[in-house]
Structures are given as structure tokens and as C-alpha cells.
């Protein structure tokens, strides 16, 4: 694997849901690369294909045309939480597990002994300053708290690529800002690339690169020289 290899790259990749009369093209002819350490905000109106593209990056959706690859990750990242971590728009914690167990889950699934995974999970929660939430159940957490625990889950696994699909979509503004802070902090701690899809221009402005999607196509890819971390509010 060369040092310049992309974590993810797509060539004329597209994704269509359904077939024939009911076919809906969600992503069309996208060519892009996500490099190590990137900070990318993926913007665009609802239904523009942001989530689908993110899911393709995570290996959760297949490219129905074109090609995708994860050269720097050593292949398809499915089932490898130490390669790609995903944060979803909705609450993605298992309701019957407390915060520590939720954070430890991908590690245990990956084969790590439970005790060690728990230790890593507590450490990740502590690093994000969420110790007070460690023993709480998802139903006892607010939306923002849940998303931060989801971020801790990513941190604990230590992936090289973090993908967040509208992580602030169901949160109020303050909670949203807090979640983005934690996400960027985590990516920095892990030295991982971070791709966040968002509607929010203010949030997008905090990222060095901003990709815009429209009707399934990647219509613009702009980059800023400024370090996005400098724009944090806290």
C-alpha cells in the first residue's frame, strides 16, 4: 500500500435503488477520493445522494455501476471497525446495552475479549469527557448524548476513516455543534480522515474540503487552506 493511496476512491461510481420502472438513481457517475487526514463536509439538499455516497464509502451500499476501492484500508471495510467507523443520523445505539457496552460492541464483534473491549470503551468515553454517561442506557440519554456515545464507539475502534451521516440532523443547534466538536477532536486523536454529510452551512464551513451533491452527482469539490480545527468554537 503506497502512502499516497486513497482510503476510498470512486470512479464513475453510481448507485440505483430498485429496478426497471421503480428504479431510483441515488448516486450517479461520482469520481472522488478520500485521502488520509482529510476533513470533508458533504453538502447538498435532501435526496441529493449524500447518505448513499457515505454508505458506499462505508461499504454498506454496493456501487451498482462504476467502481469503488479502499486501497489504503486493504480492501472492503465491512465488519472491520478498526478501518471505518460510521455515525448515523438517527440513534444507532442498542437499547438493551449501556453506553460502555455499546461502545465495546464493535470490538467484541471483531473478536476482542469482552473485558479488554470494555476497558477500551471506558477509555474512549473518558477521552471524550463522557464518563457521567458510561452506565446509562440509550433511553436515558438525550439525542446529543447518544451521538457523542456513537462517536466514542468510533474512537474506541480507532478507524482510519470516520463517516458521519448528518450526525446533527436530529439535534438542536448547541447539541449539534458539540457533536461536531467531538467528531473533529476524535478524528484528530486518531489521525483519521473525516467525512461528514450535512445540510448546515455553518458546520460545513468548519471543514477544509466541501463537496456538494445535487441530484446524485458530485457537482463541486472545493478546498480551503485553513486548518478546520482552527474554526472550532470551543
Amino acid at each position: 500500500m503506497s502512502e499516497t493511496a486513497a482510503l476510498f476512491s470512486a470512479k464513475a461510481a453510481g448507485h440505483t435503488y430498485g429496478a426497471d420502472d421503480t428504479a431510483v438513481v441515488a448516486v450517479r457517475d461520482v469520481t472522488c477520493s478520500v485521502m488520509s487526514g482529510s476533513r470533508i463536509a458533504l453538502t447538498g439538499p435532501s435526496g441529493s445522494g449524500k447518505s448513499t455516497l457515505l454508505h458506499m464509502m462505508a461499504g454498506l451500499e454496493q456501487a451498482t455501476r462504476g467502481s469503488v476501492s479502499w486501497d489504503a484500508l486493504g480492501g472492503h471495510p465491512a465488519g472491520r471497525p478498526d478501518q471505518v467507523g460510521v455515525i448515523f443520523q438517527g440513534i444507532s445505539l442498542i437499547p438493551s446495552l449501556d453506553a460502555v457496552q455499546n461502545v465495546a460492541l464493535p470490538l467484541v464483534i471483531d473478536g476482542m475479549p469482552y473485558e479488554e473491549a470494555q476497558e477500551r470503551a471506558r477509555d474512549a468515553i473518558g477521552r471524550l469527557g463522557l464518563d457521567a454517561l458510561a452506565a446509562k442506557l440509550p433511553d436515558e440519554l438525550s439525542g446529543g448524548q447518544s451521538q457523542r456515545i456513537a462517536v466514542a464507539r468510533v474512537l474506541a475502534a480507532g478507524p482510519k476513516l470516520i463517516l458521519a451521516d448528518e450526525p446533527t440532523g436530529q439535534l438542536d443547534r448547541a447539541a449539534g455543534i458539540h457533536v461536531i466538536d467531538v467528531l473533529i477532536e476524535t478524528a484528530d486523536q486518531l489521525d483519521a480522515a473525516l467525512v461528514v454529510s450535512t445540510h448546515d452551512r455553518t458546520i460545513a464551513a468548519r471543514f477544509a474540503s466541501r463537496w456538494t451533491m445535487h441530484d446524485g452527482a458530485l457537482t463541486s469539490m472545493t478546498a480551503s487552506n485553513e486548518d478546520p480545527i482552527d474554526r472550532t468554537t470551543e
Partner: peptide, 19 residues
Amino acid sequence: AERRRTFAIASVLGASRRQ
């Protein structure tokens, strides 16, 4: 309904069908 959600989450976190 609850299990569906748990499965989906565990699945995206990498759980195999056997698990």
C-alpha cells in the same frame, strides 16, 4: 421491532449472520 433495530445496528458494526 426492537430486534430489527438491534440487528441492523449490530450488522453495520460488523456482526456476522452467525453472531
